[in-house]
Each structure stands twice: as C-alpha cells, then as structure tokens.
C-alpha cells in the first residue's frame, strides 16, 4: 500500500457513515498540521540525542477522540529504527505532552487531557516500530515528560483489512476488522506532495477533479458574466470543491498544489480566452466577462467537447511536469527541517 493510499485509508476510517474510527468517536482535526515545539522541548530533544534537532513536527493526521484525547497519527510503509533520521520527528511528537500541545495549537488546556502518538504501518512492521518508540521514550524520559505511543499494522484480509496493535500498543486494545471496497477507498486527498511529489496517478487525479470542478463552475456561473465581470477564485471555487478536506489540510505542500492548480486552470482557459472580455489573472483567481449569451454557449460547448481535452493535454506532456521554482525548493527544504524562519 502506497503512503498516500494509507493516508486516505485513515481518512476513510474517520468518515462518519462507514468509518470504524468515526463510529468510535474520532473526528478529524487537521491533515499535515505543522506544530511548533517550544524552545524548552527543543532543548530536551537535543539533550536526549544531539541529532534530534526539530523546530516543529508535522504528523500526517491530527485526530480528536471524544472531548479530550488527541492522536498524532503518522502513516509509514515500514518501521524505522531509533537511530534513523525519522526518529527525530517521533521524538518531537513524544514530548508534545498535553500542556505543550494545547499551547502550540491554541487550545484551552482543559480540552487536552491526553495526547497519544500512533503509527500506522504495513502489517508485520508494528512490533519493530513499537520497540523503536519505546526506545525513544526511554531516551527522552530523563529530559522531559513523554506521551504514550503505539503502533498498529494494517493487514489485508478477505473482506477488507484488520488493524492490529503491537503488544503494548496504546492505539487499539484489540484487533479491529474493517470491511473495505475491494478496489480501495475513495481518496479524499488525491495528492500530497509532502509524501510523494512525483506520483503521476495522484496528479492526474487532482487534474481531473479540477477539470470537472472548473467545468461545473463555468456552467453554473458563466451566464452571470454577460455584461458584468465575475470572479473565478482558485481556492474557494475550485480547490475547496475539488478537495473536500482542503480547509483542514495545513501542510505547506498545499502551496505546491495551489501553484500547479493555477497553471492547469490557465491551460483550461487558454483555448477559450479569445471569447472573454477583460480576462485578468489576479492573486485570488481570474476575473472576466462575456459579451452575450451566445458566447456563453460557445464557451461551454468548447469545454465539454472532446477536442478541447485533446488539444490542451498533449499525449506526452503532463501539465504537472512543471519544475518548481527556486523559492519553492527553498520552501520545501525549510519545511522538512522544521525551520520556523524560512530563507
């Protein structure tokens, strides 16, 4: 299972109607949230291990259980050892005990009774991961209070899968069997550049969501543009509708998605550009108007036509094969290092 598929599986589990975790009382708080570490915690980390330099942590998911328990959930395909580079992130999450977590997220302390660090892995890896977490906790304990931590494995079986915690796991007291559609779950998050920036299937998925959202918006609102300007907003009108969890997706890789989405929408507009009046691109999106209802029909026919899809999508070139700018590369570097003062 790819990391993005794992993440979408976890999101599916907190989806009300069918999600095993939702039925237990879990709700989704944030995806990829960057949680800054107080300087006191940063010092505790370095004292525990000089290589554990973290300014912030960014767990894949923040889940809330009922009123007071929080999960910092990470999705991994395989376990890591206590001396790996990934251990620093784990250590950072382990020292984010309730008081520090509440402070970092701006929550009332009374709303954070317990913070658990949980790792979701491919089945068979959880015991190793649990041992690593205990090792890290042991190293941290002389220097700071630490959260409970656990790992659970995802085991495919005939009807779906089973989640099974490692022996001392704090995540699931007992194995949880979950029935799944055989072809996989509907991906609430189609792409996550922080997991894999070059997954062509993921970008293709996002592209098609944007295309359908764009066409739907045009069909609905283009008639308003006759004789008066309308605004197509990239974030509110397109991204938020294409990605249901956009508003709680806090990862900075949203910037990459935003940039590439803008480039794609530019290409969608290009073949019909000549029909618009006063087409302007702005930071929030585009404004334009059209001269008459006949032009509205012409534009919509073009957007629905197969020819337009072939023309703007040459066979060998993906619109998302756009090299990141230097600024974005720097942003990406800063994000990974947890540096609160990006270059």
């Amino acid at each position: 299972m790819k990391p993005l598929e794992q993440l979408n599986l976890m999101l599916w589990l907190v989806w009300d109607a069918q999600g095993a975790l939702a039925r237990q009382g879990f709700t989704l708080h944030a995806i990829g949230a960057r949680i800054p570490l107080d300087p006191a915690l940063q010092r505790a980390l370095i004292r525990a291990n000089s290589r554990w330099k973290k300014h912030a942590v960014a767990p894949d998911l923040l889940l809330r259980y009922r009123q007071g328990t929080w999960w910092l959930l990470e999705c991994k395909t395989s376990a890591f050892g206590p001396n790996s580079s990934t251990a620093a992130q784990a250590a950072g999450m382990l020292v984010l005990t309730p008081r520090w977590f509440a402070q970092a997220r701006g929550l009332p302390e009374k709303d954070v009774a317990l913070v658990k660090v949980c790792y979701a892995l491919q089945g068979g890896q959880e015991a190793t991961q649990q041992a690593t977490l205990e090792d890290i906790r042991h190293r941290l304990q002389p220097h700071a209070a630490v959260n409970p931590a656990g790992a659970f494995g995802i085991y495919p079986d005939g009807n779906g899968l089973t989640l099974r915690g490692a022996g001392a796991s704090v995540c699931f007291a007992s194995a949880m069997a979950i029935s799944l559609p055989p072809e996989g779950v509907y991906p609430l998050l189609p792409v996550d550049p922080s997991i894999d920036a070059n997954d062509p299937d993921a970008w293709k998925d996002l592209q098609e969501r944007l295309r359908s959202t764009f066409v739907a918006w045009m069909g609905k609102y283009l008639p308003r543009a006759v004789h008066q300007p309308v605004e197509l907003r990239l974030e509110e009108d397109l991204l938020r509708r294409a990605i249901l969890v956009w508003d709680i997706w806090e990862d900075e890789s949203r910037k990459t998605v935003r940039r590439r989405a803008r480039a794609f929408v530019r290409r969608l507009l290009q073949p019909v550009r000549k029909y618009f009046q006063h087409l302007e691109e702005r930071p929030a999106g585009w404004t334009f108007q059209v001269p008459d209802v006949t032009t509205v029909d012409t534009i919509l026919k073009h957007l629905l036509g197969a020819e337009s899809r072939r023309r703007e999508m040459p066979a060998q070139l993906s619109l998302f094969d756009v090299a990141p700018s230097r600024e974005e590369e720097a942003d990406e570097h800063d994000r990974k290092s947890g540096d609160p003062n990006p270059s």
Binding site: D16, H29, D111, V245
Partner: peptide
C-alpha cells in the same frame, strides 16, 4: 466536511 463547534475546530466527514 462539517465544521465542529469545538475549541480548535476540526471536522466531521459525513455522507
């Protein structure tokens, strides 16, 4: 994604 009326927010995914 229904916004939750809780401190710090969060959402319930429904449907």
């Amino acid at each position: 994604a229904e916004s939750l009326e809780l401190p710090g927010g969060g959402v319930r995914l429904t449907g």
